[in-house]
Nucleic acid binder design. Structure first.
Lengths: 406, 406
DNA sequence: TAATTTTGTCCATATTTGGGCCAAATGAGA
DNA sequence: TCTCATTTGGCCCAAATATGGACAAAATTA
């Protein structure tokens, strides 16, 4: 039950039904490939003739293609349809405080060449030229991948509404930095930029698994240097007025709590970020130390998790405290957006076996009855590289998105 | 950029453009009435012919009607179009812990007869029969109001996804109560039920003011016995998986804070509800006392606000503490959903002159830079009866809502 | 009185879906 | 081996809708 904005609407034209059904057919081919025209028609409750018209137009445009012949028990064999992943590719880039990772994927987000990385150069101009040159090298080294449809970039910070400027990326020291335009000029390719936590949510939204369908309402919580949260509402990323919605990391857990990098006190992030966990391990507030605390350089969160796995009680205790605060914060999040599922990513995913019970217990402790206590929690391991998949989704997803009407 | 759910989509038919444009035209007539066919065509960027077809169909259906002739500087005078508010009405009901209020409105939410109220009977069967009988009396007493299109009801509690059951209304003592079906049977009219805080948001969303347009992303915070929050995202109420999204009242402000009625500690609601303010005034936790604390029976929040206005330092101090916590909680809310505007309702609206500065200061204190610090705050006085208007919107809004496509 | 402007209606046209029909391909059964 | 049923995919026509232009009616202005 959406209100039509009297100042911002789109009237339907004769071409609108075709646009709508075209996107539905394309989405179905994407989700259920390989699929025949006849099957598509059955899924869509349309005549085969109408579907054929759409499909042939999509083939004409090079969006999908006809592949192998399928099998049926009787009758003429179907010609299978696929989303075209041969002639086009996308570049996914994950900018992190210390290193920048990138890979080339096809248009449904499957990696085509392995992940490459290089140290993140913080000086914007030099960073842009280095990234552009590396991308161009990979693309020219692999001309068999076909034309590059675009570059998707995720950053640990806020991005403005147009997606062209990085408003604030504290760990990179970037303030109101125009990143899109110089990169597009340097690369000659369309570029999309998004916050990394939200991109993780996008990666899950657009993931094409076989059986289990992704729900339309879920959240992704990425526990890492910071705390990134992406909220999906009705199959769409929650953006808000300035494209900064979803910053649950800076929701209060205790207004008198420890100081957070954002300047406020007791943000959720200040309790559960990797640095918070390490601080707890060392019994000292590492966030105060600039630019980087010595301990964090010597012992990473991955090391701490390994220690906990090998029986180190202090490391386990630090993680369990984090788990408790993670669960308590998740409860506020669940009360606020009532998601069908919670994805948890970041380095802490590797410690899930150690913290799951605590997270679930403290989540239930604060979750409103009578619902919301059975939220599904899915852990996304780092080996799934959710941020890079999110970056890839930035490029590929728009062509599969629903048209805007009314 | 919405994903099309491969398991739940709607294909467009030949009739789809007409459905879409019909709803747009209807929304425009609603928002800009009185308006002529030619003006409508200009707003919609369509030919007058096509608009005439739609308009005449709407007139045929009795949804809109042709009223007075308008004025132009030259040329033929237009026939103005209006949403039909003569032949149909709606009943809006606001169930509160102590009293239940109701009124009859037209289909754009304007009151037609004054507000009536009666003590809320907590025994469900008796409540249903009393409410039904009172509604039937009013409708039969005012047959000139025309046919009743439905009854909208708001309750201080959670409602299930189908809108038929009250899952939990603590202050009424209602648990998993089927309310819709018995009322529809007793009344012979369609009934809609919604949480009151969210209904307040709906009331603002569907309000038809002259000039100032309501944004598509905003929140309504109703500070009353409890703390009701309604979140509007892209012109639509945030509902979540179980229809309980938006319970920011039970987001933590301090996990070690005072006990909340929900069982958890330090919920925002426990800091800013009317009872919390009164507790602060009396220097004693009134929430613990059951069924009702003596002080709250003797001094209402309205009395406290009057005292503060007349210079009572203790009352003012209690309100100012509430203001501070209200602002701090709003900051979490702003960080989470990045709204364009915040509406604040409830009894505390009457004290806005005393608390505005503190609310704004503490809101800024925790709001992430660089955006979100200029959120517009609009206070909705009780005299606007936002809950009743929300109840009316439950009946009227569906016929103006955008069609679901793709 | 004539010209101009504005509103609302009407008609032919292009686009798109839906239904029906047909050819091709393939396996099952006589 | 031949026939028939089944399935896929393509083609044509009818129905529905927006588009574009023409036109009458109504009112003001020169």
């Amino acid at each position: 039950m959406r209100r039509i904005d009297p100042n911002n609407f789109r009237v339907a034209t004769r071409a609108t039904p075709r646009q709508i059904n075209r996107q539905i057919a394309l989405s179905l081919v994407r989700a259920r490939q390989p699929i025949s025209r006849a099957d598509l028609a059955r899924w869509m409750n349309m005549r085969r003739g109408a579907v054929s018209l759409i499909v042939n137009a999509l083939i004409e445009e090079g969006i999908i293609f006809e592949g192998a012949t399928g099998e049926t028990s009787r009758g003429r064999k179907p010609k299978f349809l696929f989303v075209d992943t041969r002639s086009r590719c996308a570049v996914a880039v994950d900018i992190r405080p210390t290193r920048t990772y990138f890979m080339v994927t096809d248009l449904v987000g499957r990696p085509l060449v392995g992940i490459t990385s290089f140290p993140t150069e913080r000086e914007p101009k030099r960073f842009v030229s280095e990234l552009a040159s590396r991308i161009q090298h990979v693309l020219s080294d692999h001309e068999e991948l076909g034309e590059c449809a675009g570059v998707g970039i995720v950053v640990p910070g806020m991005v403005d509404r147009s997606g062209s400027r990085v408003l604030f990326a504290p760990r990179l020291g970037w303030h109101d930095l125009s990143l899109l335009e110089p990169l597009e000029v340097a690369l000659g390719l369309p570029v999309s930029i998004e916050n990394s936590g939200r991109a993780c949510a996008l990666a899950q939204l657009w993931a094409t698994r076989g059986g289990s369908a992704t729900p339309d309402d879920f959240v992704f919580v990425s526990v890492s240097d910071g705390l990134g949260v992406g909220v999906i509402v009705k199959g769409e990323l929650l953006r808000g007025q300035h494209n900064v919605a979803g910053e649950f990391g800076h929701m209060a857990l205790s207004i008198e709590g420890p100081r957070c990098a954002c300047g406020a006190n007791g943000c959720w992030e200040a309790y559960v970020s990797n640095l918070a966990t390490l601080s707890r391990y060392f019994g000292r507030d590492l966030t105060e130390e600039q630019p980087r605390p010595i301990e964090a350089a010597m012992l990473t969160i991955d090391d701490l998790i390994a220690l906990a796995h090998s029986g180190d009680a202090k490391a386990l205790g630090a993680l369990q405290s984090t788990a408790r605060y993670l669960g308590l914060g998740l409860a506020s999040l669940v009360n606020a957006v009532d998601p069908a599922r919670i994805y948890i990513g970041g380095e802490i995913a590797a410690a899930w076996d150690l913290i799951e019970v605590i997270v679930r217990t403290s989540l239930k402790e604060r979750t409103l009855r009578p619902v919301g206590r059975h939220v599904e929690i899915i852990v996304v391991p780092a080996s799934d590289y959710p941020r890079l998949k999110g970056a890839a989704a930035l490029v590929a997803a728009p062509s599969f998105a629903a048209p805007v009407v009314a």
